[in-house]
Design a protein around this nucleic acid. Structure first.
Lengths: 228, 228
DNA sequence: CTCTGTGAACTCTTTCACAGCC
DNA sequence: GGCTGTGAAAGAGTTCACAGAG
């Protein structure tokens, strides 16, 4: 029984940082015609990384290229999809249907990439019962019941900060083990629950930091009157 | 002559990864009463990092604590604000006023953290001229003129993928050197322009990856019938 | 005694450079 | 010739553990 699926035999430990890039490669591939091959140089450029990095990343999944030629686009797409779990259909629940929530509902990344948005929740009684697309907004109080019923495995929190921890607790109680958190809060969850946070304020501050540093350097430079 | 301002004398090279956490510390501090001190253990816990990491991060900005006591909350807030450029007011332009764009306009992180949302743009003629809050939506064609006029230093791209590169080009032409990109595209810009990308699809796929891995492990475990 | 600041060890990630296959 | 896959080196970032200030 030595069928190599590429899922179980990963060679070395696949680094967390590489997973993020693999998803990027998969997206680039999806914009390509599904025929022929592509070499590491071209794919790396399109994905915004160096060729050596791409080859290393792919090597974690086994040998999927042909020396002297490149990577078969169809084959590589399959390998990546499988490694990233894009073959299964993950059911996603979204909590908090404000502007951000609606933006997420409209986000095309759900469709056709292994994700199915399968539940919406909000605490606002004015919103409960209304539809966004073809999905009904359910009451926050029903999270456990509805999520369990629909086999939700991924939760997205798009509520204000104050509600985020409570929502996380309830999602965990509903059996959700992966959470994407847009609220600017550090959530406490059991260690087997995986959280990813997207924090808009933080992203802005990173940019502000570099702006500040830039201004500082400009000042210093002009103080010295150097133009070299 | 050992005047340590903390701004110029950074000791060692401040790692990119640390900047992100510094912003997190600053946020935690802002939720605290502005009196007394806090020790690395407590602040680290609240920010979701280890105490040693917090101390190391702060040490990049110089010595801002008192041994045996902790960090003065007011003083540390000032140090962090200054280091992160939260003292200046950065003018931000948002391009693409769809659901995501509106969510960003409503985002409270702009106010009171050194950011001023100072321009909105959209290509849709139906949107141009309308107001969101007290800001008028201007035409995409006017980006260069308006951004230059209003001294915009940070641009946020919340358009569909197809438009993102074009918008980036125009922002760069308008003198913007820091861009936050929500479109799922790799943008090409001059090397002195700093880009941060927030990619919702990618975040979801990272979670999916770990879900897939989890499922795999469950299968393996149940195959062996082990419950220990 | 408490808690910071930091050299040193360690781990994780990237990059180089080239052997090996087409 | 061209391009992949990878050992080995370099570089970044994290954690330990303890000297030393209060």
């Amino acid at each position: 029984m030595s069928v190599q699926t590429g899922d179980e035999r990963d060679g070395r430990h696949l680094p967390e940082a590489a997973v993020e890039r693999l998803a990027g490669y998969l997206r680039v591939l999806s914009t390509l015609p599904p025929i022929g091959t592509i070499c590491s140089d071209d794919l790396a450029t399109a994905a915004g990384v160096k060729p050596a990095q791409l080859r290393r990343d792919l090597s974690y999944l086994g040998s999927n290229g042909t020396r002297g030629v490149g990577y078969d686009i169809v084959l590589l797409t399959q390998t990546l999809s499988s490694a990233l779990g894009a073959q299964q259909s993950h059911r996603v629940a979204l909590v908090g249907v404000g502007n951000l929530g609606r933006a997420l509902v409209g986000y095309s990344g759900f469709r056709g990439r292994g994700f199915k948005l399968a539940a919406l929740f909000d605490v606002d009684p004015h919103k409960v019962g209304r539809f966004v697309g073809d999905l009904r907004i359910d009451a926050g109080a029903d999270i456990v019941e509805v999520c369990t019923d629909r086999g939700i495995s991924i939760g997205v929190i798009a509520t204000p900060r104050e509600s985020a921890q409570g929502v996380a607790d309830v999602l965990v109680a509903a059996g959700v083990r992966s959470i994407l958190n847009f609220a600017p809060a550090v959530l406490e969850v059991p260690s087997d629950v995986r959280i990813r946070r997207v924090d808009l304020g933080l992203e802005l501050q990173m940019l502000a930091f570099h702006e500040a540093r830039r201004a500082e350097e400009t000042t210093r430079t002009s103080n010295r009157g150097s133009t070299s």
